[in-house]
Design a binder for these strands. Structure first.
Lengths: 259, 259
DNA sequence: CTCCATTTGTGCGTATGTATA
DNA sequence: CTATACATACGCACAAATGGA
């Protein structure tokens, strides 16, 4: 049998009709199938969360052995397009939220670009004495006072990240009280404290989630997270926030562009 | 017993002498101890890889209960400064390599800044037909030819990352052959192909390592990695490389700055 | 709870086309 | 040319997980 034949598609009406205008001949069949399925997802035939036909059905539709089809599925699973649940089926994976990192901190805007409703849930707002990395990055002596604001970032109600933001107490008087009912932190800083809140540096590494964060984010233990340390400044360059954010690794991408 | 007393240090000559100029009074003892130890590490009294005194010795030195000392150790362990091996001891953890992400791709320079010798090991250089994300990002039709260069990034001989770089074949003729004995990829592109290799965008997410990468990087399965997709352009803005890099999460930080 | 159908995961054997020495 | 190694594809069987009766 010819192992590099092109696809012979048995086009069943029950399944999305496949375009046959751009037939590919030289590529392995499993890659051709992956491309077909990718197109099906990108063109909206299968939408996020949808269950794909079973492996048996798909291998029938593409007229290939189940192994061949599984290899195509595996490719798309590896690149994050599909999610395969043993015993349940194959589903279109939720696209990771792409968060562009620029000078401004625009979390809600990034979510809206994905058609999601952003939001925060305040866990804690209190004054603490600074130490370690917090003291160092805020340029405060150890033991000085800072306001820590711990909050969960939500996308359509689902937890996406946990952030501990540290603000120098003397720059932001009464921040603890004012943070209680805020809707947007950027807005609060801008309107109440005349602070522009510009991102100076962002340091990214990968870790495994800690038990407490796993509980908050609703992910299993040993899940990967993006650990992001950000230093945000005022217009005059003084540091106004040292933030430590733990993003869910599976549903978040940080995009840095050189415009 | 006063839980917020300051440190009363029994300064033993066997241990590094502690500065007593900046006595702190209001902070919890375990934080004061953590600050002391952090200072000890930062000032070079304990160096990377050194074993700290045992918990018993340290609790004796700081005149506190072992539980109090352990809490200080835990803080420093959680923030990555120390590494605690059950049954062996406590050690100063290797500092993560901070890799500044700018317009230019300067991996070796980043390593030299950490006093490490950079290097590459070529795993594969071959021509492949493109599909999926590679085709999309290189703006090539599915099935077109690209050169894939798979290489391990080394710091002092230790694997730090695995990168698959995809280059359009027609822009880089004979790249497969020329890549065999190259020392620097940037240099090769610049000198042989008159290509400037400027970073356009960098997309970061966190994943768990795949078995093959775990073997290459020498990390256990389920370790977190930084998955970095980068798109690099020529002077004229055409895409010349689509790269997928998997960094060890524990020993690498990516630093993005808004200059 | 057990039982069972459905669905994905894994292993082995076979065959063929492609690339290389 | 042969010999070898590798990638691709198919067929069959069973294990493991899920979910409903």
């Amino acid at each position: 049998m010819d192992s590099t034949r092109s696809l012979r598609l048995r086009e069943l009406t029950r399944y999305p009709v496949v375009t046959s205008t751009h037939r590919i001949h030289a590529l392995p069949v499993y890659i051709q199938i992956a491309e077909e399925l990718r197109q099906n997802v990108e063109s909206g035939i299968y939408r996020v969360g949808d269950q794909l036909p079973t492996e048996a059905q798909l291998s029938d539709r593409f007229n290939v052995n189940r192994h061949t089809l599984r290899r195509a599925i595996a490719m798309l699973r590896d690149e994050g397009l599909l999610r395969v649940d043993r015993g349940r089926g194959t589903f279109v994976a939720a696209k990771p939220i792409r968060y562009p990192i620029g000078k401004r901190v625009r979390f809600n805007e990034a979510l809206k670009a994905h058609g999601k409703e952003g939001g925060y849930r305040l866990l804690r707002a209190s004054e603490v004495p600074v130490e370690g990395a917090v003291a160092r990055n805020l340029n405060l002596p150890v033991g000085a006072s800072a306001v820590v604001i711990e909050r969960i970032g939500l996308a359509d109600g689902q937890p996406i990240d946990v952030t501990n933001g540290y603000f120098p107490s003397d720059r932001f008087p009464d921040l603890v009280e004012r943070a209680q009912n805020m809707k947007s932190l950027s807005k609060l800083l801008r309107e109440e404290y005349d602070c522009d809140h510009i991102r100076r540096s962002t340091c990214v590494s990968a870790r495994t989630v800690k038990p407490n964060d796993a509980r908050i984010l609703g992910v299993p233990l040993n899940s990967p997270i993006l650990l992001v340390e950000s230093i945000n400044c005022d217009r005059d360059g003084t540091v106004v926030e040292y933030g430590v954010t733990r993003f869910r690794g599976d549903s978040m991408e940080l995009l840095f562009t050189n415009s």
